[in-house]
């Protein structure tokens, strides 16, 4: 048996080309692979992190953004503990699709899943979505928010570590079973604090 106390499933979704795979690669392998081909189906990676002395195993499912893989990716929503919805700050269309993605999440995911909105590619000069717009969207939809750059390794580690942190808090609040099993009947009530009210809460904006 591997040695860990918590196991959490984290699923990344969002339009094709917003950098989901790069975020995962950056976090799990410390790389930024340029010229990454489109993901086929679903990729998965595992990384064990240490949060206040507790070993936490993160099972990260990196889904394909293209429409034709939708029914594959949808099958992963249900058992996710955290969903990271990614858009590209330099692409208005990727931001415009967020409501569609939220509808999917509402339909397939557990109602209590930890939802995080991530604006990626902050290194780009041609930003189209100002930070406050993303922040506002997250707040209206009761999501955590963070802006990242997988290329510059900006906020990537922080994103996953804070998700792990929040999930531990949740799991502990729901003793005694440490692993949350994605069961709607007995899932924990996630303390969805809005980012604006608690500046120290997980993934509140950090600019």
């Amino acid at each position: 048996m591997e040695d860990y106390r918590f196991l959490f499933k984290v699923v990344l979704v969002g339009n094709a080309g917003v950098g989901k795979t790069c975020l995962v690669r950056r976090f799990t392998q410390g790389l930024f692979p340029p010229g990454q081909g489109a993901t086929i189906g679903v990729d998965f990676m595992i990384k064990t992190v240490d949060i206040n002395g507790e070993k936490v195993k993160l099972q990260i499912w990196d889904t394909a953004g293209q429409e034709r893989f939708r029914s594959i990716t949808q099958s992963y929503y249900r058992s996710a503990h955290a969903l990271i919805l990614v858009y590209d700050v330099s692409s208005q269309p990727s931001f415009d699709c967020l409501p569609d993605w939220l509808r999917e999440i509402e339909e397939y995911a557990n109602a209590k899943v930890l939802r995080v909105l991530v604006g990626n590619k902050t290194d780009r000069e041609d930003r189209e979505i100002p930070t406050y717009v993303g922040e506002d969207f997250a707040q209206r939809n009761n999501m955590y928010f963070m802006e990242t750059s997988a290329k510059e390794a900006d906020n990537v580690e922080k994103l996953f570590m804070e998700i792990a942190h929040a999930l531990i808090e949740q799991a502990k609040a729901r003793e005694p079973v440490p692993e949350y099993k994605g069961n709607p009947g007995q899932s924990v009530t996630l303390n969805h604090r809005t980012p604006s009210t608690t500046s120290e809460s997980c993934c509140s904006r950090l600019l």
């Binding site: 086929i40 893989f69 029914s71 594959i72 249900r78 058992s79 994605g182 069961n183 709607p184 009947g185």
Partner: peptide, 22 residues
């Protein structure tokens, strides 16, 4: 197809864990 198998397993677990257990 590995992805196909995984998706069907996921969906089956969903049916057992939600619909059937309910």
């Amino acid at each position: 197809s590995v992805d196909g198998v995984c998706a069907v397993i996921n969906n089956a677990c969903g049916i057992l864990e939600s619909d059937f257990a309910d």
